[in-house]
Simulated scan of single mutants.
Amino acid sequence: MVTLTLEHLSAHYGRRQILSEITTPTFAGGQIVSLLGPNAAGKSTLFRRILGLLKGGGEVRIEGATSERPVAYMPQETGSTAVLTVYESVLLARMQGRSLKVQP
């Protein structure tokens, strides 16, 4: 089973600290977990940090994965004019691997 644990995770843009000391319990594959917060609270930054698209302090542990890319990321803004359902977006992200930037 794949698990995800965050320990003392931080991220910043330039000198501006966005995330500071985020620690979570271990999330197990198959769990449904939500991340809620107002605009500009750091939700997307957290996902980018988990994927390694942003550098910062702390540790992201993904254990039990059977592939090198156990996480897929589909940003809300892709720059594409394609209209996809949520299901199609998830399938596309899974096929592309860790990070997906759709070009028009």
Score class of each variant (00 low, 15 high):
M1Q: 12
V2E: 08
T5W: 00
T5V: 04
T5N: 04
L6N: 08
L6D: 07
H8P: 08
H8W: 03
L9C: 09
S10R: 06
S10L: 10
A11T: 05
H12R: 14
Y13R: 10
R15W: 08
R15F: 12
R16G: 08
Q17C: 09
L19M: 04
L19C: 06
S20Q: 10
T23M: 10
T23V: 09
T23R: 09
T24N: 01
P25R: 15
P25Y: 04
P25M: 08
F27R: 02
F27Q: 02
A28N: 13
G29N: 06
G29W: 01
G29F: 02
G30R: 04
G30T: 05
Q31I: 07
Q31A: 15
I32V: 14
S34P: 06
S34V: 10
L35D: 04
L35W: 02
G37F: 04
G37Y: 03
G37H: 04
P38V: 01
N39R: 02
A40D: 14
A40T: 06
A41E: 09
G42D: 02
K43F: 02
K43W: 01
S44H: 02
T45L: 05
L46K: 07
L46C: 10
R48T: 11
R48L: 15
I50Q: 05
G52N: 06
G52D: 06
L53P: 09
L53Q: 13
K55L: 11
K55I: 08
G57S: 05
G58Q: 03
V60Y: 03
R61K: 13
I62W: 05
I62N: 12
E63G: 15
G64R: 00
G64F: 00
T66I: 09
S67K: 00
E68C: 06
R69P: 06
V71L: 05
V71R: 00
A72M: 05
Y73V: 09
M74T: 09
P75V: 00
P75G: 00
Q76D: 15
E77P: 07
E77W: 07
T78Y: 01
G79T: 05
S80Y: 00
T81P: 11
T81D: 13
L84H: 02
L84E: 03
T85I: 08
T85D: 06
T85F: 01
T85A: 03
E88A: 04
E88Q: 08
E88T: 01
S89D: 07
S89W: 03
S89Q: 15
V90D: 00
V90Q: 00
L91M: 14
L91H: 12
R94G: 07
R94L: 12
M95G: 11
K101Y: 08
K101D: 11
V102T: 13
Q103G: 13
Q103M: 13
Q103A: 13
